[in-house]
């Protein structure tokens, strides 16, 4: 059997991509290898670690659990799309640096996507709510505490209006 091919039109960080892809190509491989946006990480490839989290039509999902064909006609935001328009880091990203919310950085794109989505619907989350929002993301380095602190710091900075310190 030959490799089945499908044509897709997927908007990634506001840019439309029309191309032919292997039908079985996962969305995360499409983002990393076809679009060449390697910010999204791929860890387990079966829905456990959360490293591949992206935003699909406004909601965080795991991009290893979708085939690129399923995203045909839809919009994706990756971690690259979370930065400020001028390329500088968002308040949330900067807060991760401030609080040492990352060490090796492998989980970080997924953590940023998960917590960015949380802050959009809940600008002042409790520590418990933050932990719940990242419960589907594994981090082998930080012990999670500094990630929770990063999100709390970002929330405080946005609330105080000093987003771009």
């Amino acid at each position: 059997m030959n490799e089945p091919i499908s044509s897709v039109c997927i908007t990634v960080n506001g840019v439309e991509h029309r191309c032919e892809v292997p039908t079985r190509l996962s969305l995360v491989d499409f983002l990393r290898e076809t679009v060449r946006l390697t910010g999204t990480h791929v860890g387990c490839e079966h829905g456990i670690c959360g490293a591949c989290s992206v935003i699909l039509d406004g909601d965080p999902v795991r991009s290893c659990l979708m085939f690129a064909v399923q995203a045909d006609g839809h919009s994706i935001t990756t971690v690259e799309g979370l930065a400020n328009a001028d390329g500088s880091m968002s308040v949330l990203q900067d807060s991760f640096c401030e609080t040492h919310g990352l060490q090796c950085g492998y989980c970080t794109p997924g953590m940023l996507v998960a917590t960015h989505s949380l802050l959009k619907t809940n600008p002042n989350p409790t520590a418990g709510e933050i932990r719940d929002a990242i419960s589907g993301n594994l981090c082998r380095c930080t012990g999670y505490q500094q990630i929770v602190e990063a999100v709390q710091l970002a929330a405080r900075r946005v609330a105080a209006g000093n987003g771009n310190r």
């Binding site: 059997m1 490799e3 089945p4 499908s6 292997p22 039908t23 079985r24 996962s26 491989d29 387990c44 490839e45 079966h46 085939f67 064909v69 045909d72």
Partner: peptide, 11 residues
């Protein structure tokens, strides 16, 4: 960890 090939249709 990649799926085997398949044919696809959207209903």
């Amino acid at each position: 960890m990649k799926a085997a090939i398949f044919e696809y249709a959207r209903a």
